[in-house]
Design a protein around this nucleic acid. Structure first.
Lengths: 193, 193
DNA sequence: CCAAATGGAGAACGTGCGTTCTCACCTTCG
DNA sequence: CGAAGGTGAGAACGCACGTTCTCCATTTGG
């Protein structure tokens, strides 16, 4: 007998459909302007099931950010893992940012946007944003120490990456990735000796 | 006879009171969670007058961002003008960011937050945000060229400043200012010879 | 001093939306 | 087969809020 019954599979499938719709709509139009009814329409999951899976909209938002965080960091890591040399791996981060910025539906950093929208009212969203940014910074920190570089460099590279994300979102441009990458190269080189 | 009649003065005063309340509330709690009635309560300006001064909430938001932009850049320029040496003036920008981050009611960059909240729905807000960021970048550019440094440095310093603002807002910390300032110093020094 | 316009307080209107409820229709299992 | 429980479609409920309107007091200009 399966550990996952037919009913459980149906619930899991509905959950993914709901999160797919939530991600697409929330990211594209913001969270507050998307109603639960829009999620239902885009996902095909009934309101009843939606509220069964996520007892409140805030929990759906939380799950959306959580799943996106895992996937986002996974995609980044996959790109970085295409390189071996520690210094090169650091620059690969900014390279990947450029690829991300170039995606046609890019609308800035989902977490920064969510923070701007709900940072003052939703502690769960704040926790997700801090968690995501903390995880990204930790990842950067790993790359820096693997390259034998001082930890203080991590913060600087992190700020460059954050600045690039906001600016790419606001200006609808991919340039910030190269500009940040250039600055990162200089900072890394300076620390190398 | 005055070019400003008593009535005009009253209107101008009400406008300032409305904008004072709007700035305090919008910045602290976000724009969508503050109702026009909250603005009335905090400002003492009646709804009728509010709508007479700003025919729609979006226009009040626009005016709020516009006035804040002028004041923000003024405060920054005043701090920078405390220094003469061109290289020092660049670093003074990050110094001032640190002072700003340390203010008790600091809640991140008002424009980045507004963009996250309304960037997908309000073209007027988007225009204000792009305008403000453009003006800030231009100001930085002036400092860079005054120091005889290459223009490409402007973009890098801008990204550091933006990253510091977002991060200070999300993490509720003033550290990003020093971290960004440290990176800026390295970037400037590297270009100096 | 009076008519006309202005202003404030707050009710009212319309709408959007988060959340719950209704009800008819299955599915399931004894 | 038949009762019990879950499900989808969508109505319904409550509330918040942007915007407008009502009503009365006040001011203003002739």
């Amino acid at each position: 007998m399966d550990s996952t019954s037919a009913r459980e599979q149906a619930l899991a499938a509905a959950r993914e459909q709901a999160l797919d719709a939530a991600e697409e709509l929330f990211y594209a139009r913001g969270i507050q302007t998307v109603g639960m009814d829009d999620i239902r329409g885009a996902s095909g999951v009934s309101l009843k099931r939606l509220y069964q899976l996520f007892p409140a909209k805030e929990l759906l938002v939380e799950a959306y950010l959580e799943r996106r965080d895992v996937r986002w960091r996974q995609r980044l890591a996959e790109h970085v893992d295409g390189y071996e040399e520690p210094g090169r791996r650091i620059l690969a981060v900014f390279e990947w940012l450029g690829q991300w910025f170039a995606e046609p539906d890019f609308r800035g950093c989902a977490w920064i946007n969510s923070y701007g929208e709900l940072g003052a009212t939703s502690p769960r969203v704040v926790a997700q944003v801090r968690g995501h940014k903390g995880a990204f910074k930790d990842y950067l920190g790993g790359l820096v120490t693997a390259a034998g570089l001082p930890g203080a460099l991590t913060d600087q590279l992190f700020l460059l990456a954050e600045g690039a994300m906001v600016t790419a979102g606001i200006a609808r441009s991919t340039e910030p990735a190269e500009q940040a990458g250039g600055a990162a190269r200089v900072l890394v080189e300076t620390q190398r000796r």
